[in-house]
Design a protein around this nucleic acid. Structure first.
Length: 314
DNA sequence: AATTGCTGCAACCGCCGGGGA
DNA sequence: CTCCCCGGCGGTTGCAGCAAT
C-alpha cells in the first residue's frame, strides 16, 4: 500500500489542462513570494490544484528561463550522445541543455530521436545478457571497477571541497547544480567527475579508451586509477567496503611525510589518467569542452589538481 | 465533408530518496 | 532507528491537432 496520492480527486482538486488564469495566479505568486512549500502553495496562491501539479506546471512550462521552439541540430546531437552515456537520466541530460526541461527532452527523445535512430539502424541495445554468461561476468567486473573508481574519484571530490560534506552528497549536489553559469563553481565542478565521469567511463567511449591504452603501451586494461577488480559487487555494503578500502591509501595520517608524498603521487597519477581520458572522450564525442555557453561537464585539470593537492595535503 | 489513424506534447501517476521529527 | 513528509524523477496516459483516406 502506497501513500495516498497528493492529487486526490475526492478533495475536488482540479486536474487536466491549465487555464491562462491559473497560470497567471501561479506565476504572480511565485514571482512575488517564491514557491516555498509546494504543498502549501496552491492554497496560498488561490489555486484549486495540488502542489505537485503546480510544481510541474512551473518547472515544465511557466519558468521564465525555459527555451521554447524546436531543438537545434546541436541540441539533438548532444541529447543522442548524452543518452548513449547516461541512458534515460533526463534530468541529467536537461542539466546540460540550458533552457530545456527533462520532460521536454524525454518527449523529444520518445517521439523524434528514438524513431530517427531506429530508421538509421541504431536501435536501442537489446536487453542485457543472461546472468552467468561471459558477457554478464564481464559486465559485473566492470561494475566492480566502476565502484572502485567512484570511490577514488569521490575522494578527489571530497578533498577539493572545503566543507565536510560526504562525497556522495557532493556528487548528488553537483548533478543538479550544473550548467547555466559560465563561471566555474569549484565545489560543483570538482564533484562532477565522480558521477558523470564514471558514467562516461563505463560507456563505449570508456571501453574504446581502455582498448586504445592497452594497445598503445602494453599497460593493464584497467588504468592505474583502478586496481584489478576480480570481485563481483552485489550489495551496497560491498560497495561501501570497497569505498573504505580505496579511502585508506588516499587518506593517510596527516603530517606523515612519506604517506603524504605517496598520496600526492597517487593523486597526480589519477589526475593524469583523468586528463588522458578527457582528451580521448573529447576527441571521440566532440562534446564536453567549451560547448553550450562555455560550460564544460568536467573541470579543467589545473583546477582539479590545484584543489585536490592544496586542500588534501596541506 | 466526414471519418479514421497518427503524432506530439502537456499533464498525471507512482515510486524513490533525503531530511527532519 | 523508524516513521513520515516532501520534492524529484522516469514512465505513462490523454487529448488536441493534423494528415490521410
Amino acid at each position: 500500500m502506497g501513500r495516498a496520492p497528493c492529487c486526490d480527486s475526492t478533495k475536488g482538486l482540479k486536474k487536466g489542462p491549465w487555464t491562462p488564469e491559473e497560470d497567471k495566479l501561479l506565476v504572480d505568486y511565485i514571482q512575488t513570494n517564491g514557491h516555498g512549500s509546494w504543498r502549501l502553495l496552491p492554497k496560498l496562491a488561490g489555486l484549486n490544484r495540488c502542489g505537485k501539479s503546480c510544481r510541474l506546471r512551473w518547472t515544465n512550462y511557466l519558468r521564465p528561463d525555459i527555451k521554447r521552439g524546436p531543438f537545434t541540430p546541436e541540441e539533438q546531437k548532444s541529447i543522442v550522445q548524452l543518452h548513449a552515456i547516461v541512458g534515460n537520466k533526463w534530468s541529467m541530460i536537461a542539466a546540460q541543455l540550458p533552457g530545456r526541461t527533462d520532460n521536454e527532452i524525454k518527449n523529444y527523445w520518445n517521439t523524434h530521436l528514438k524513431k530517427q535512430l531506429r530508421r538509421m539502424g541504431l536501435d536501442e541495445p537489446p536487453p542485457g545478457p543472461a546472468a552467468g554468461s561471459p558477457a554478464a561476468r564481464h559486465m559485473a567486473q566492470w561494475e566492480t571497477a566502476r565502484l572502485q573508481a567512484e570511490a577514488r574519484l569521490s575522494l578527489l571530490a571530497t578533498a577539493s571541497s572545503s566543507s565536510g560534506a560526504t562525497a556522495t552528497a557532493t556528487t548528488a549536489a553537483a548533478t543538479t547544480s550544473a550548467s547555466s553559469s559560465s563561471t566555474v563553481d569549484l565545489k560543483a565542478c570538482c564533484a562532477k567527475p565522480a558521477d558523470i565521469f564514471l558514467r562516461l567511463w563505463s560507456s563505449d567511449i570508456g571501453d574504446s579508451f581502455r582498448r586504445s591504452r592497452k594497445t598503445a603501451a602494453a599497460a593493464p586494461a584497467v588504468p592505474a586509477l583502478l586496481p584489478p577488480a576480480p570481485v563481483v559487487v552485489k550489495r551496497k555494503q560491498d560497495a561501501m567496503m570497497i569505498k573504505q578500502e580505496a579511502q585508506a591509501p588516499l587518506l593517510g595520517p596527516v603530517g606523515d611525510d612519506s604517506s603524504a608524498a605517496s598520496n600526492e603521487t597517487e593523486v597526480a597519477e589519477a589526475l593524469e589518467e583523468y586528463q588522458m581520458f578527457l582528451d580521448f572522450a573529447g576527441e571521440e564525442l566532440g562534446l564536453f569542452h567549451g560547448r553550450h555557453g562555455g560550460f564544460s561537464l568536467f573541470p579543467p585539470l589545473d583546477v582539479l589538481a590545484e584543489a585536490s593537492l592544496d586542500t588534501a595535503f596541506k
